[in-house]
Amino acid sequence: MRQSRWFWPAFGLPGYVWLGVLFLVPFYVILAVALGTVDPIFRFPQPVWNPLEWNVGAFEFIFEGLAPGEQFFVIFARTFAYVGIALAVSLAIGYPVAYYIARHGGRWKAFLLLGIVAPFWISYLMRMLAWVNLLQDDGYVNRILMWVQVLDAPRNWLDGRASTVIFGLVYGYVPFLILPLYAALDRIPRDLLEASRDLGASPAQTFRRVTLPLSKAGILAGAVIIALPMFGDYYTPDLLSGSPKTNLVGNQINLFIHGPQPTVGAALTVLLMSMLAVLMAYYLITTARMSRANER
C-alpha cells in the first residue's frame, strides 16, 4: 500500500488545530481588546479586529507607568524578582530531590515520584487555603516553631510579607520542576560517570563537569514549566498576603480587566507575554543548540 504524502503530516493536525484554536485565536482576541475600545455605557471591551483601526492608548498608558519607580515598573520588577527567587529556591529544593530519586531511588523510584506528585492531585487553591490555616496565629506552623523554641510568640506569617508569597509559589510549583529534572538525570548513562571517575575526576568535579551539563536541558525545561504559570499567578498573593506590596502583574491584569479600562488589562497581558517570549526564545535556542551538539 502506498502512503499518501500527507499521511505523516496528518498526525500533527490535532496539534496545529490546538495551537490555532486555543492559542493563536485567543491571542488575537486579547490583542484586539488591548488595541480596541470600550463601549460607552458599561465600559466593556470592544475588540477592534482590523489592525488599521487599532488604537495604542492602553500601551501608552502602560509605558508612562514603566518609568523606574512608577506603578508598572514596580509591579513588573516585583514579579520578576519573586519568580526569580522562587525559581532559585525551587531548584535548590528540586535538584537534590530529583538527583536522589534518579541515582539512589532504586526500586522505590516510582513510589517516591508518586509520593511527590500525590499532594498535587488536590487543587492549587485548596492547598493554598490549607496553608492559610497552617500559617495562622494558632496554626501548626507557629505551634511547632514555638514548641521547638524557635519562636517565643506566634508570628503573623500572613501579615503581607513577601517571603510567605514566595514560599507559596515554591510550594505550589516545585513538583513540576522535579519531574523533568528527574527525567533528565535518570537518562544520564552511568558509564559516563564511571568514566569520569576513572579518569581521575573527584565526585564534585564529576558533578560539575558531567552531571550538571547533561541535566541542563531538564533544568531549563523544568524552569520554563514552573516559571510561566508563576508569572501569571495572582491568587497566591491574594490568598497568602492581600497586601498591595506583594501584588504581581497578574493582580493588576485582573484589576484592570474587571475595571473601566479592560484595554489596559489586555495590554498588560500582551506585554507580559512578549517579555516571556524573550525567555522562551532563549530556552528554544539553547535546547536547539544542545541537540545539535548531541548529533555531532
Binding site: 485565536v25 485567543p26 482576541v29 486579547i30 481588546v33 463601549d39 455605557i41 458599561f42 466593556f44 471591551p45 470592544q46 475588540p47 487553591l125 487555603l129 495572582y234 491568587y235 491574594d238 490568598l239 497578574g250 491584569i253 485582573n254 480587566i257 474587571h258 497581558t269
Partner: peptide, 24 residues
C-alpha cells in the same frame, strides 16, 4: 476564592469579550 480565581482564569474566554460587542 474558587470563583474569583475561575473568573480571573476566564480571561481568554472569548465569549465574554465577544458578548460585549452586542451593546446598544
Amino acid at each position: 476564592l474558587q470563583r474569583s480565581a475561575a473568573a480571573g482564569l476566564g480571561l481568554t474566554g472569548a465569549g465574554a469579550l465577544l458578548a460585549a460587542c452586542a451593546s446598544d
